[in-house]
């Protein structure tokens, strides 16, 4: 079982030491997502504070499944909020938030770590990897991806689908449902 799930059970019981352990285990991930998306260490630090305070004040928001996946989506959604709020042109389209649950079972991602995912990403053709990373961490829509990479929209769609499928195969059992 995802160790975060066990820690969250104790956090729900207002166990500060469990919360501290949770922070120790996952703050690098949350901070890293903030840094990749916002591009500023201070903002990433604020985002980390916000995400962990949410965990402490509303632990019921985590309804089971993979804690890593959930906290990553919370961090990404928060970062998107920040990007939206600082948009110079509010009419710019931003991606919708990610759904917070519903995709995965308890043991998903349990066998993964940062290096294994980076290695798997490195096996993708450059053009697929670039689109996938920019899409996930860039906080931009598919149209913006096409514009920034000067790639036809249809090609963007095909590459992202192919890349995610290939990534799924490469990661294999580590992301089994």
């Amino acid at each position: 079982m995802d160790p975060g799930v066990r820690m969250m059970e104790r956090v729900r019981a207002r166990d500060v030491s469990a919360f501290e352990s949770l922070y120790d285990a996952y703050h690098r991930l949350v901070f890293g997502i903030g840094l990749r998306m916002l591009g500023d260490p201070s903002m990433a630090e604020d985002l980390t504070q916000t995400v962990f305070m949410k965990i402490w004040t509303a632990p019921e928001a985590f309804r089971g499944g993979s804690f890593v996946a959930w906290v990553s989506r919370v961090a990404r959604n928060r970062a998107l909020d920040v990007l939206r709020s600082r948009a110079v042109h509010p009419e710019i389209a931003f991606p919708a938030d990610l759904p917070l649950e519903g995709a995965l079972d308890d043991d998903v991602l349990a066998g993964l770590d940062a290096q294994r995912v980076r290695d798997a990403l490195a096996t993708l053709p450059t053009e697929q990897r670039g689109l996938i990373e920019l899409g996930f961490f860039g906080g931009v829509t598919h149209q913006e991806l096409a514009r920034r990479t000067q790639t036809p929209l249809g090609t963007v769609k095909t590459r992202i689908r192919s890349g995610l499928r290939r990534l799924r195969e490469t990661l294999g059992e580590g992301v089994s449902r």
């Binding site: 991930l29 840094l35 990553s72 940062a114 996930f136 499928r165 990661l171």
Partner: peptide, 13 residues
């Protein structure tokens, strides 16, 4: 596909 997308987050650590 979302499992793959979820896994991407790890690479940000």
């Amino acid at each position: 596909l979302r499992a793959s997308a979820d896994a991407l987050a790890y690479s940000a650590e």
